[in-house]
Simulated scan of single mutants.
Amino acid sequence: MRHLWRPGVKALLRIIEVVEANYPETLGRLLILRAPRVFPVLWTLVSPFIDENTRKKFLIYAGNDYQGPCGLLDYIDKEVIPDFLGGECLVSHCVGA
């Protein structure tokens, strides 16, 4: 629970509220890969505040599930998926790593 900074969670909820009110159909699909361990806790807290139609657009993959059936290749061409995620796009360095 030490990872859940109250002002940060409140800010995230406000951002979700503003985006849903002003850009309801902007999001097509959101793929979340290799999320940190705290993510399920955060998702449990935040998801009830997200509209159901928006919530259905979130795809969350644990471990390497994104490389199998119903994974990244169903949504993104293999040529543009970075090689470290199993695609063909060569990435020479990671910014911010």
Rank of each mutant, 00 (worst) to 15 (best):
E25R: 01
E20W: 12
I16H: 00
L73V: 02
G86L: 02
M1F: 12
N64L: 04
C70I: 08
K56A: 15
N64K: 07
D77F: 04
L45Y: 05
T26H: 08
A35W: 02
R34N: 07
T26P: 10
E79C: 08
E17V: 06
R2V: 14
R34F: 02
Y75F: 12
I15Y: 00
Q67R: 03
D51V: 05
D77S: 13
A21K: 12
V46F: 04
E79Q: 01
T26G: 06
A62E: 15
G68S: 03
A35K: 03
Y66S: 00
R2D: 14
S47A: 09
P69F: 02
R37K: 11
K10T: 08
C94I: 04
I50P: 05
Y75K: 13
D77T: 06
E17N: 09
V80Q: 01
K56S: 15
E20Q: 08
I50Y: 08
I50D: 11
A97M: 10
L27V: 04
P40K: 06
L12G: 14
T44G: 07
P48C: 05
V19N: 04
C94S: 02
G63M: 09
L59Y: 11
C89A: 11
Y66G: 00
T44N: 14
Y75P: 11
N53R: 10
N64I: 01
V41Y: 07
S92R: 01
I15K: 02
A21E: 10
L59S: 13
A97W: 15
W5N: 10
S47G: 10
L31Y: 02
K56H: 15
Y66V: 01
D77C: 11
V19C: 05
W5S: 15
K10F: 15
D83V: 04
L73H: 06
L31Q: 03
E17Y: 05
T54F: 10
L42M: 15
N64C: 05
P40N: 04
G71W: 03
L12Y: 08
H93E: 06
I76G: 03
P69N: 15
V95D: 12
L73Y: 01
V38Q: 14
W43Y: 15
